[in-house]
């Protein structure tokens, strides 16, 4: 067995600050199950950050990731070019989403959560379910993977906050109508915490089994540190080993929202530092360009 170079093989900018990456990781591509995630690191000084698996190509040995640049590390990942590589990719992590023949399933995705929904939708379809998807976004340009989702699901609805695409409104408006129209047996929401909470509140009185995928702050992803702990049904659980999927009706979303804001000050500092570094390196590059031309006749260019 040879250690893989986790190379970016394909890269597609699918929305502002949002990329869909195909990364070489043949073992993970072969072994992962829908709902699982990886933890990646981009360089020696880098942070370990979790990313959901958004599908794979087993033949080519590729895993798919959908990444939104929100801070320093996700910004660095967004900027990886084809041929660049991650330093580390560990996975698959977490328990897989339970797939069964439920009947009618509604999958709700917001932001990068739409990535994780792709393999879950496929698996649910293959298991004989009727699969409906609702994709929510602020505006048209932020609706992610709509075409791909349509190819996988029986029905797809899109909502935007400003009505620039699909329906004006939020995902729960559509979910409510679907539930009123016909029986729904399984709901899964992956996306912003507020969205997952609203979905869970909506399905609670209907007693529809509702799973949410919790994106907490993580370090190791193996149950060793407790950074990812969440409160579910009054009990402390570790999202990386006991999740990431949990029963949305039992999750304390407020506690997670607070914990996810733990490093806001530090995150800002890191992001500003990265901006400054990038500006500096642009200036250095510009300067180097000037001096190189100026010196071209006398000295050979330094490497």
């Amino acid at each position: 067995m040879i250690q893989t170079r986790y190379e970016v093989v394909r890269r597609r900018e699918i929305a502002p600050k949002t990329v869909h990456l195909a990364v070489r990781a043949p073992e993970i591509a072969r072994k992962y199950r829908p709902g699982q995630f990886v933890i990646v690191r981009t360089h020696e000084h880098g942070e370990r950050v979790p990313l959901s698996l958004a599908g794979s190509d087993m033949e080519e040995g590729l895993i798919y990731l959908l990444v939104q640049a929100v801070g320093k590390t996700s910004g660095e990942i967004h900027d990886l070019a084809v041929g660049d590589a991650f330093l580390d990719v560990v996975g698959p992590l977490g328990r897989p989403t339970p797939i069964a023949e439920y009947g009618t399933c509604v999958l709700i995705g917001g932001g990068f959560g739409v990535g994780a929904l792709q393999p879950i939708a496929t698996a649910l379809r293959d298991a004989g379910n009727r699969v409906i998807a609702i994709l929510g976004a602020r505006q048209r340009s932020l609706v992610l993977l709509e075409e791909e989702t349509r190819a996988l699901c029986d029905e797809v609805y899109v909502t935007t906050d400003d009505g620039s695409h699909g329906r004006k409104g939020i995902v729960t408006d559509v979910l409510r109508e679907i539930i009123e129209r016909a029986p729904v047996h399984f709901v899964m929401a992956v996306g912003p915490m507020l969205m997952m909470k609203a979905v869970s509140e909506l399905t609670r009185p209907h007693r529809i089994r509702t799973l949410v995928s919790l994106n907490t702050i993580m370090v190791d992803g193996t149950g060793m540190c407790g950074s990812c702990r969440v409160v579910v049904g009054g009990q402390t659980r570790f999202a990386c080993v006991h999740g990431p999927d949990f029963d949305g009706h039992l999750v304390d979303f407020e506690a997670i929202r607070q914990r996810n804001a733990m490093y806001l000050a530090e995150e800002r500092e890191a992001l500003e530092r990265r901006r400054a570094e990038m500006e500096e390196s642009c200036q250095v590059a510009a300067l180097a360009g000037q001096t190189a031309t100026a010196r071209q006749s006398s000295t050979p260019k330094e490497s």
Partner: peptide
């Protein structure tokens, strides 16, 4: 947990934040 606190520093270099990214 002590594990998280120590891991952030020992494995991830959080004592050298922001030179290292882990806070």
């Amino acid at each position: 947990s002590a594990n998280e606190f120590l891991t952030r520093v020992n494995l991830m270099g959080a004592n050298k934040f922001p030179e290292f990214d882990t806070p």
